[in-house]
Design a binder for these strands. Structure first.
Lengths: 236, 236
DNA sequence: TCGATGCTACGGTCGGCGCCGAAGCATTGC
DNA sequence: GCAATGCTTCGGCGCCGACCGTAGCATCGA
């Protein structure tokens, strides 16, 4: 069985403020250098190096060396899902802080951000709402599915739902999706293959753009129109 | 936003061997006393008391006092899901240990166990396989759904799928389910409302029974027949 | 009322680990 | 070649927290 010692070891790796900051930063799926990660964690590069070494040897991170840079990224989707579930719990248990937490950076994150490979924040929730309202998808509790009209819509838009393969198991002809409770909106947005496909598509078409050095994304004017026309998304 | 400090705090709570053992033990959804939990963690009651106090004030555990006993249980489904995802990562990263891990207790766990509120192990996977083979359910990657024939089957058996409500969001007429990668079988079993309903039903009908002081369950002779007749499950 | 049981509070010990400064390797560019 | 950059290793400091023994507080049974 999975020894509890192993569970504790993994959890302890995520249980340090500096490492948690690094892991959380990597939640957008990008690969960053040790120096960048040291900066977001607020520690010196040599300390960060130690942390990154531990995370890498444990298998939580994967590194790719390019010249004198070493790019670190989350080793797998499972790692991202773990961080996600911890954040979930953290947001639930978080004491109702004052509106202290609404700095400009935070506002951008609340508006729209990536959650590993899909969209979250008000944009993510609005997208999910629009798809549900139009009957393009259905969700209930733990899971959801793209309806026939949804499949037709995505096909018409050129969104490739098969790009991210499911994680093993049997394939079915249906396209399911995973609802993911949004920590800022406290309502579900779409994750899984569908969420990833929409996110990828939106980046490729220039509908959204990454905000430098953050998980936040900004909706371009073009994207604003496209999202409204394609999905009926209304952004305030 | 969810501060990374908060994430680290939650992860650190699960990142101690003693606390991880306690949390993992509580994954079967039962409520245990401090002394019992101290025993499984291999520490003295007074040390356990301290740990339990921290977990409780953080909101990971809920306590219910009954006379001179204080029963501790996981505070929510979200906590269980977090532990689950950490175990998931741990099992992935676990070094391929020798067949050292096949003690008798471990064998029982591999055969059949509860995973918070649903069934796992060979039994859980066999159940999922049988339902999928018979076309009573479909899964793909992140999610799945009970088919019409499945709904008819559960109705005929008297399994109440509506007993555990979904976690907010919009209700749909469909019954979705969540596949959960089994750490011992490395293949998906059924979680979510459907998994919980099957598990509850099996306990109520006396098809399975808890093994004392463990997450393992044993299939009764009656249950062996019932599971075969009802779902076509073949247990070796 | 009085012991027994379950649990918690306090004080002291000690090991682990997060941190940085300094120094040592790689790689790049001049 | 020689500096500059990115990263790692090493050594030492300091602190947090896990642990237990002892003691104190509730609850139960006789």
């Amino acid at each position: 069985m999975v020894s509890t010692a192993m569970i504790a070891e993994i959890a302890a790796l995520a249980g340090d403020p500096a490492r948690a900051a690094m892991l959380n930063t990597l939640m957008d799926g990008r690969a960053l250098t040790a120096t960048e990660l040291a900066s977001v964690a607020g520690i010196t590069p040599q300390t960060a190096s130690g942390h990154l070494a531990r995370l890498t040897t444990a298998g939580l991170l994967a590194v790719e060396k390019q010249g004198r840079h070493r790019y670190h990224r989350l080793a797998s989707q499972a790692i991202a899902q773990m961080i996600e579930s911890i954040s979930q719990v953290a947001s639930t248990l978080e004491p109702p802080r004052r509106n202290l937490s609404t700095g400009p950076r935070d506002l951008a994150l609340r508006a729209a951000r990536t959650c590993y490979d899909h969209l979250a924040g008000r944009l993510g929730v609005a997208l999910a709402d629009a798809l549900l309202d139009a009957g393009h998808a259905e969700i209930d509790g733990d899971a959801g599915e793209v309806t026939d009209s949804g499949l037709a819509l995505f096909a018409a838009l050129g969104v490739d739902l098969d790009r991210s393969p499911g994680r093993g198991g049997r394939r079915s002809t249906r396209v399911f999706c995973r609802p993911c409770l949004d920590w800022s909106e406290r309502r579900p947005h779409l994750a899984g293959a569908v969420g990833a496909a929409i996110c990828t598509h939106s980046f490729e078409r220039g509908w959204i753009r990454r905000v430098e050095g953050s998980r936040a994304v900004s909706v371009t004017p073009k994207g604003r129109l496209a999202l409204r026309d394609a999905f009926g998304v209304r952004l305030d």
